[in-house]
């Protein structure tokens, strides 16, 4: 997949005007920052052999909750804390249903996706909720050393979760659970706890992404991020994460996120109409995964 990324990057640099400019690079990174953040926890979720489809709804609902609570209480901290707590609760419930009640993660999160989307509309009354606290917009719109804050946050997430996956017992346990849950259980790994923790982290991360998004657009939008979960899962798949669990690598997921971002960015620069962008994105996802498999098969084992 790194080869695909390199080819794509060089190709775009050569053929797409303005692609390599500093402003565009920043724009590209900012555009993928949310996908990148949530891909970190999605990587864990997929590596443990599960799915989470509810994240798009959580992003929207958390943004709305943050906006509404901030406007009511006048406190940014309380608004953020409430939204995060909401994300954590959704995650715990998802995790509990999947791990303890043994309901398939696809079905569980398909249900919570709709419930949470509905809650977002109920809380917001169906329309965008403007936020009246200037200080809150700093999170999404400030820059540090000339680079937008969300990019720093995403980079930090990559580092932290990459470290968690490779260097901690929890990370290795996650891969073992995804690779063979029964064998992991019989080797003394607390399989249910691992899954609940992962779903909780996923809910928290999605809520956090929702807060950052609300800060960037200065409002809570109940309609936002529809299909975001598929974008994140696509990025992970591009990054070689196995949908059946047990295989995942943070470096490759970063590559996957960047591939998605570059494709989107290049098409925008070339003024490809939105309708065609969908077709192109799907085609590229399939092509990249096929190419990756073909390359692996031709490698000596």
């Amino acid at each position: 997949m790194l080869v695909v990324l390199a080819i794509l990057f060089i190709g775009c640099s050569v053929f797409v005007e303005n692609f390599l400019s500093l402003a565009n690079m920043k724009g590209l990174a900012l555009a993928v920052s949310m996908t990148g953040m949530v891909a970190c926890t999605m990587l864990f979720c997929l590596a443990a052999g599960d799915f989470d489809l509810s994240i798009g709804s959580v992003v929207a609902c958390a943004g709305v909750i943050a906006a509404v609570v901030m406007n009511r209480t006048g406190s940014i901290t309380v608004g953020i804390a409430t939204a995060l707590a909401f994300g954590a609760v959704v995650g715990v419930v998802n995790g509990f249903v999947v791990a303890k009640l043994k309901i398939n993660a696809l079905i569980t999160t398909l249900a919570s996706m709709q419930i949470v989307r509905g809650l977002g509309f109920i809380v917001s009354g169906g329309s965008a909720v403007g936020i009246g606290h200037e200080a809150f917009f700093v999170l999404g719109n400030s820059t540090v050393l000339g680079i937008p804050t969300p990019i720093w946050i995403t980079a930090a997430c990559f580092a932290v979760f990459g470290f968690l996956l490779n260097r901690t017992v929890f990370g290795r346990d996650t891969l073992a659970v995804g690779g063979n849950a029964e064998a992991a259980h019989l080797a003394g790994i607390a399989v249910e706890r691992v899954k609940i923790v992962i779903f909780t982290a996923q809910g928290l991360m999605a809520a956090f992404a929702g807060i950052v998004l609300a800060s960037r657009v200065t409002s809570g939008q109940p309609n936002t991020s529809v299909g975001f979960e598929l974008e994140v899962i696509s990025a992970c798949v591009l990054g070689g994460v196995s949908l059946t669990g047990g295989i995942g690598n943070m470096g490759f997921v970063i590559a996957g996120v960047l591939i998605m971002g570059i494709v989107q960015n290049a098409m925008n620069l070339m003024n490809v109409p939105t309708f065609y962008q969908y077709v192109a994105r799907g085609t590229i996802l399939l092509a990249a995964v096929l190419f990756d498999r073909w390359k692996r098969r031709n490698q000596p084992v």
Binding site: A176, L186, I189, I247
Partner: peptide, 21 residues
Amino acid sequence: KKDGIVPVRSVLENINLSARR
């Protein structure tokens, strides 16, 4: 295959699955 090994992980991972804790 069903209860013992984690097939997609390495020999090293499979040996240390429990004692690494």
